[in-house]
Design a protein around this nucleic acid. Sequence first.
DNA 1: AACACGGGGTT
DNA 2: AACCCAGTGTT
Length: 366
Amino acid sequence: MTKAQGKAVAKDCGRATRITTALTQWFRANARDLPWRATDAKGRRNAYHALVAEAMLQQTQVSRVLEKYSAFIARFPDVHALANATEEEVLSAWSGLGYYRRARHLHHAAKNICKNHEGKVPEDAESLRRLPGVGRYTAGAIASIVYGHAEPVVDGNVTRVQLRLEASDQRQGEPATERWAWKHASDLVARAADPGAFNEAMMELGATVCTPGVPRCEACPLRKACRAASLGLASTLPVPKVRAGRRAVYHSAVVIRDRQNRLLIQRRPERGLWAGMYQAPTVEREDRAATASEIKKWFGLARIVEKERFVFLTTHREVHFAIFTSSPPPSPPAAARWACPSEIAALPLANPHRRILLGEETIQTR
DNA sequence: AACACGGGGTT
DNA sequence: AACCCAGTGTT
């Protein structure tokens, strides 16, 4: 190493240390709540609670998680309770949160922990990552926040903070950018006195101060260190990512009620959209809505009446729903069964079917 | 590297 | 109506 390179490394070390120190101090002074994502109700570190919280936080904002987290923990208070639950119970507790594969992974992870780890959530990031649904982010979050290991954590917030700190015009979401962000996070966390607090601080800064769009630089503890701020680029970085468009799909659902006020329901396939969840009997088409005769033929119905149409939007799809009613068929399809409303309410239902079957106004439609 | 996978909030 | 947010696993 030349003298000049040595100086540059020393300078970067100083910068990294200033950043970790300032950020951790800010977090300690401004922490909104107790570190709920890693502790039990009495404030004790609890890796199972952290596993649940971090699984819920994947692709989901804190406010949405807070609506479901307590009920989930109350229903499955420890890893054994979760491991011994049925998949339907777990999916049901997850209803409304989306990305339901996370719930199934979490369930499998709990079983794995009971079987192979004597009911204790593994401590090191490498073992954590072998659990289903636990990737680099979740492993790093648990290892650092719960166990204090100097493991990096990069979520969308952290990547945005890094890109602004370094005034980088790399596009968020691209593999090279993510590798770069993980490298920076590793360098920073290595100098943090409290890795867990530092990682939480980075995520919290991104969520509350270094926000997408126009950040609140006047309130930022890293303003002096931030290259985007000093160049006046804070609100123009990071450069927006390219987004895939939404694909249209057509779901024709039939609400069929018998004399005892029971409804006909069916379980969705194990893979794909709303995997393993329940719904009113539905005919799906890719390019157009199923015709009335197709729907009648599909379920052996004599007559159907259209009640409503709406479009349910997700990130990747626009689901065009057409809702029909019908009297019961002579012989219900083998794949469907009858259930009363109170039973249905406890089953895992995708949000639109909560409205279709139970009339709950829980979703936005167009 | 590209894709699949939900849902809700803000402008 | 058109933007925004955000990990893991599979292909």
